[in-house]
Every structure is written in structure tokens, then in C-alpha cells.
Design a protein around this nucleic acid. Structure first.
Length: 139
DNA sequence: GCCAACGTTGGC
DNA sequence: GCCAACGTTGGC
């Protein structure tokens, strides 16, 4: 199983919106970046991901899982863009902020630190465990 | 709200 | 196929 990180501006689509969708989940649509799309194409059902609030928030607030593998993005007719569906699994007991992540040398190579603009990113198993520990939730 | 970093576009 | 111009993202 692989680990990922999904970024969203909470003013547009936040953790609360994701939770409100329940187990049915929701398309992670609107991605118009090849790297992010390619990451979604790699995803399998059951893969886990962090849900990160960008711009206002700047913290990992919860854990999601992939509940539908890559399929065409219903918000566009452009055949280039695919997306997956994700559903909320549980919130972090303590949100993990960008500042904390930057302050931890073990996380210096995270894509979130290295390439903050990529909106769908891979996360290593080691990074996953460290951040779950910081967020006081089970990995 | 600013602006640096990055990705994409399109003229040549 | 290069690269300048442009648009967007997201941390600050």
C-alpha cells in the first residue's frame, strides 16, 4: 500500500466538506497538473493519504483513503485529466503544521517541503509514520 | 495581498 | 525544439 498527500484550500474544499461526504467519498477533481494526475493514476483502492489545508491553515488535518481508482475527471471534457475518489477516514488528533514539518530534519526531503506547489504528492512510509506520531494518531 | 517558484503556452 | 512570456499556486 502506498501513501499520498492531498492539498486543498479549506475555503474551497476543506476537511469538514470531505467528512460530510461520508464513506461514499468524493472525486478529487479539478487537478490540471500532469505530475499530480500521474500520481493519482498510480493510486490503488485502500491507499492512504494525508489531507492538507493550503494557503489558510497550512496543516495536515486528517487521513483519507482512496475509494475509487483513476477515472476521467467529470468536471471537464478534456480527456487528459483523470482523478480518483477519496473518503475521510479519521481526523488527526492534533493537526501537524507546515512549520513543524519544516522544523523536523527527518522530513526535510518531503515533497511538501521541496515542491510546495505540487497538489497531489507521494509520501514515504517513514514520513507517514513520523507525521502520524506527531499527529497523535495510529499510522 | 505580495511575490517567488513553477508549469504551460506559443512564436520563432 | 528553444525559451520568453504568461498564468497559477501557495507560503509568508
Amino acid at each position: 500500500m502506498a501513501y499520498w498527500l492531498f492539498k486543498s484550500e479549506p475555503d474551497v474544499w476543506g476537511w469538514d466538506d470531505q467528512v460530510a461526504r461520508g464513506d461514499a467519498g468524493e472525486e478529487w477533481d479539478g487537478i490540471r497538473n500532469y505530475q499530480a494526475r500521474n500520481n493519482m493514476r498510480e493510486m490503488k483502492i485502500g491507499d492512504q493519504g494525508f489531507f492538507y489545508h493550503s494557503r489558510s491553515g497550512l496543516e495536515i488535518v486528517g487521513i483519507v483513503e482512496v475509494c475509487k481508482e483513476s477515472h476521467p475527471d467529470s468536471t471537464t471534457d478534456d480527456p487528459r485529466w483523470d482523478c480518483v475518489d477519496i473518503r475521510a477516514v479519521r481526523p488527526m488528533n492534533r493537526p501537524v503544521t507546515m512549520a513543524e514539518i519544516k522544523a523536523d530534519p527527518r522530513l526535510a526531503d518531503m515533497v511538501l517541503v521541496r515542491n510546495s506547489r505540487l497538489s497531489v504528492q507521494p509520501v514515504t512510509e517513514e514520513e507517514w509514520q513520523i507525521i502520524c506520531e506527531m499527529g497523535e494518531t495510529a499510522p
